[in-house]
Nucleic acid binder design. Sequence first.
DNA 1: GCAAAAGTGTTAATGGTACACCCATGG
DNA 2: CCATGGGTGTACCATTAACACTTTTGC
Lengths: 252, 252
Amino acid sequence: MRDLEDFNDTNLQPGLSVDCVLFGFDNNELKILLLKLKSIEKWALPGGFVNVDKDVNAEAHAVLKNRIGLENVFLKQFYLFGNLERNLNTHTPELIKNGIISTKRIAFFKQRFITVGYYALVEYSKVKETTVDFISEACEWHSIHNLPKMIIDHKEIILKAHQTLKKELNTEPIGLNLLPKQFTMPELQALYETVLEKKLDRRNFSRKMLNYNILKDTNKRRMGVKHKAPILYEFDMENYNQAIKNGFNSIW
Amino acid sequence: MRDLEDFNDTNLQPGLSVDCVLFGFDNNELKILLLKLKSIEKWALPGGFVNVDKDVNAEAHAVLKNRIGLENVFLKQFYLFGNLERNLNTHTPELIKNGIISTKRIAFFKQRFITVGYYALVEYSKVKETTVDFISEACEWHSIHNLPKMIIDHKEIILKAHQTLKKELNTEPIGLNLLPKQFTMPELQALYETVLEKKLDRRNFSRKMLNYNILKDTNKRRMGVKHKAPILYEFDMENYNQAIKNGFNSIW
DNA sequence: GCAAAAGTGTTAATGGTACACCCATGG
DNA sequence: CCATGGGTGTACCATTAACACTTTTGC
């Protein structure tokens, strides 16, 4: 779907789209990758449509691959947005008026759309902000606390994705996917504090994490900081997967 | 949609359905409400289609209201089933052959369908197993451990609903909706043991539950049992809602 | 040597686990 | 009076929360 001519609606599941909330972690902030639409001052989540011959989940992966160039990303369905208000959108008429959506496709774009929300976790530095296609002209990270004007309910989708992330911090491999291979304890803690939006005690955090036995000391330290050099850790994949499978605790 | 003539596909969202996994608790078992399809030996989840003018969530509620006669039920979206294999179904051709699906609707029923899974919690005794409509001839509770032959991926949907129930036992009002207004501690424990599929210590369970402060002693006892009469409790709605909002514990 | 942030230790309170004993009820 | 299951107590252990001191690094 690199340009207008490639886009063909004849084989698509009618009225169904997928949208991906792509989380990255940088500068102690959660960031979301957004696309700037052509000809209007609004941003959108990377999304796409569903071929009638493709799994819905596979199409979400395809969005990340084709639009952002990402493969083998942690990606998880979290909610279907199916209310009616989301179709009172104003951007489609504008895009049609501005010639971004071809007249042949108007009927397709004017359908009532339902969208499946996915959240994805990627290492911030691995994404190059370059993708452009027939409908978007820029691709940039935005802090979750400072989002630009967005189409339809995309802000609400991001909010719900963040809530889901908070809930699933202890049952999904969130640290693993948002951090580089090697990281320090304070970096891991900063990620947790950012996702949870609250401060944690440094000493208790460290002990608890180490007790889970999911971290491997690499015997290296992050150098060049103007204070005591912190230890670099990696995840111990075997123990990590075990811990994720069981959840990190359970009440009953 | 009480009979064939009422069914009109012209205003429906194409290729989208909703299916409800209705949980009840009886005789220390989790039970699921299933519909027996006309003319074939297969059962199905209560489900329906989505009007293009209706919220998807509202349509799930409508299924419960129109097909089962239930209103104000706890109902929650849990997953979108969108793989391709689910459309290699064999029951639609059979239903067409047997005249259950009118020839005018063949094109509609042969589409590729994606379904949104909902789970619902109801007090077992409140459901009368009576509903019949143009496509189903019986409506019965089945133990989750002894399910009959079911169409497409409906067994898989039930499995995933059960997994979700287990996970959400501490963040969703599960006890509240599956039990009658008044219940005993052993009954509540049996529900937990059933959902979680494991035994819990009677004494510790009781203490822990009471410590949550979500139960009110009604000063009554369940009479007519051939042992010490157990105390009847009710949920203290204010504290209960608070506890649900926070989750019953959190790690961080 | 000073500021900044990292590493580590202790203690008290809380909550969980694993037990055993007594009590009320119907038959 | 006995079998059945309900209510409650206690002791031990693990986990958490709150807090302070020492160490390393760049400047």
